[in-house]
Write a protein that binds this DNA or RNA. Structure first.
Lengths: 231, 231
DNA sequence: CCAATAGTGTCTATTAGACACTATACA
DNA sequence: TGTATAGTGTCTAATAGACACTATTGG
């Protein structure tokens, strides 16, 4: 234990989350208004210090922050990237480990009340939210959106934004919304069947004034299924 | 500035590198023997503290470590992932930001002398090096190998391990080596042409007792080109 | 019966994979 | 002329994309 083991030589480290959900109008991200300096009063991605006495590891820290802000415990969660530099935080050399979380529509409905006070869902427009964000969070959000849009092409990601039970048509329409283009129904269903990430709920049908639709759920709500080819 | 701003609450943070090159017998990774506790005397991935007075950002820290260990300045470098937990380092809660670096065969030849004393290239066998490594470095190495093997399928990654000038046959044989299977020459060349990441060197041919082969170089040594489909 | 959406089938233009062929050097 | 590897062409089986068709409900 030779060197760099005192405060001045240690960067500060936080975990920040890009938490996404589907609002009625489209993909949205959860933002919080900062209470303290720096950037007091500005919007930011939810985040917090690593609690060395409380968090067993990085993912646990991310889950703790998520629970504090939304009340949700077991969503889809993946590490995006880590940024760190001398200048991104005026308090000094700082590191942010960024996670992406996807909340199902059920999570939002149930936990609207449990949401921390100064938090708000903001609709995604283009590469961000049309607001300036604290720190380098606008750039982090842009990276998160890039990752999400890329994964829509070849994974079950959109399924994690729907309520627990949904029809194939509902799933297809989320894909189309996130991709910004229409998909062929037949081809879509072939890919979904191949990737094999859905389980039909026996006997449960969505009824309307047309042929009833089979209702499905994800086989695994915590991992993504990948397609062999693009959707 | 309210809380968690003293040493006891701050995790320690290092940058660690999985540095790969092609040795005559195959893909190899650079390991160093640790001089100090913890894990003194054991093999580990090269790494080091972030120098808050010297490194502008995380990537700069990674490049500094790389230069210290190998003398190489501008290889392909990408962030892999960040691990952090209470238990991975006996000194306390610690974070490691892991980078992958690919060195061209030229880099190795030139800098063999400049390499730090207790560093050694170890051949990859299966999911690691057949050695126990310090900290969680065996697991980090396994992740790095997964990323590399995955990217061989759909990117120009193998080109970054060759010397600056190479023929298409040499490139194909690196793909085959990393994938562990033979590729069709015609299909391989179609993909490479589509991805458009090579520049023929005008008039430069590799001569032997057969038809001479066109020599190529990468258009960009610091970024990967991606294929539309798998190789 | 009509309207509306669910779900499946069919046809064709495109492409991937296997394989063969031609080209060009040195010995 | 023989041998070895470079580089290109061809054929076919598999596939994707467009589109059409059938199925099943409520009104």
């Amino acid at each position: 234990m030779t060197t760099h083991d005192n405060d001045a030589f240690r960067p500060i480290a936080t975990v920040d989350l890009a938490i996404f959900s589907l609002s009625p109008t489209g993909l949205s991200v959860l933002l919080v208004r900062r209470a303290n300096a720096p950037f007091s009063g500005e919007w930011a991605l939810p985040g917090g210090w690593i609690h060395v006495d409380e968090d067993a590891n990085l993912e646990a820290a991310a889950r703790r922050v998520l629970k504090e802000k939304t009340g949700v415990e077991t969503p889809y969660l993946e590490q995006l990237q880590t940024t760190g530099s001398r200048t991104r935080d005026p308090r000094g050399w700082s590191i942010s480990i960024v996670y992406i979380a996807l909340l199902s529509a059920d999570d939002i409905a149930e936990r609207q009340d449990a949401m921390a006070g100064e938090a708000e869902w903001r609709l995604i427009e283009g590469e961000g939210v049309g607001l300036s964000l604290a720190f380098d969070h606008a750039s982090l959000l842009k990276e998160a959106l890039g990752r999400i849009r890329s994964k829509v092409e070849y994974s079950s990601l959109p399924g994690h934004l729907l309520p627990a039970r949904f029809t194939l048509s509902e799933l297809q329409s989320v894909y189309e919304h996130l991709l910004g283009r229409k998909l062929d129904k037949s081809a879509f269903r072939k890919r979904v069947a191949e990737a094999d990430f859905l389980k039909p709920i026996e006997g449960e049908m969505r009824r309307a004034s047309n042929r009833p639709a089979q209702v499905f759920r994800l086989k695994d709500t915590r991992t993504l299924a990948l397609f062999d080819r693009t959707i």
